[in-house]
């Protein structure tokens, strides 16, 4: 069995921003999936609030929400119908389409007719509105224009103020408008 990375030890503090960075194929997505409880093909121990990640239940996925790099929705449903379905799944009353980005003009469009950037905005908007304590975002800046990227950075700061923890991945350790509290470089492991 090929090992993607080894000897990886780190802590992620509550209400902080944690970055995973590395070149393509270094295992950023794999690591984020493992941290989100979506991949259990690893050796070692991961604890979340002093509980081993192997002993978690489905409700953990409400606390730690993973937002993949390629947003996936039901293509034949409209944005509003997708949001209604996802609000049921997350146990929320309603997901507001305009909470983070102005998306009113696309709410009646089928997802298959949307651009990658619009899909990404919907995905981020859902993640932000969920009751998650930890948001795990795989390359959140992908597909977004400069204005939306700046907006994401602002949202990150706001989320940390609301006691949420952000884990995100990127190819390089760029300078952001927010402070990255801790990071892990996958290029050398």
């Amino acid at each position: 069995m090929t090992k993607v990375f080894r000897n990886l030890t780190f802590d992620i503090k509550k209400n902080s921003i944690f970055q995973v960075y590395g070149n393509n194929g270094t295992g950023k997505t794999t690591l984020l999936k493992i941290l989100s409880g979506l991949d259990n093909d690893y050796e070692g121990t991961i604890n979340y609030k002093n509980i081993n990640l192997n002993n978690i239940e489905t409700n953990f996925l409400k606390e730690v929400v993973f937002l993949p790099s390629l947003p996936s929705f039901y293509e034949n449903l409209t944005v509003e119908e997708n949001l209604r379905f996802l609000s049921n799944v997350y146990g929320l009353d309603k997901l507001d389409i305009n909470s983070s980005f102005k998306l009113t003009q696309i709410k009646d469009k089928q997802v298959k007719d949307l651009s990658d950037g619009q899909r990404k905005k919907i995905q981020l908007s859902i993640g932000i509105q969920s009751d998650a304590e930890v948001l795990v975002m795989d390359e959140p800046y992908n597909f977004l224009d400069i204005e939306s990227q700046n907006q994401i950075s602002y949202i990150f700061i706001e989320l940390v103020k609301k006691n949420k923890t952000i884990i995100f991945s990127d190819n390089t350790k760029d300078s952001y408008t927010f402070e990255v509290n801790n990071s892990v470089n996958l290029n050398n492991v």
Partner: peptide, 9 residues
């Protein structure tokens, strides 16, 4: 992947 796989379902 299954769309629901990443969701708390």
């Amino acid at each position: 992947e299954l769309i629901v796989f990443n969701l708390p379902v």
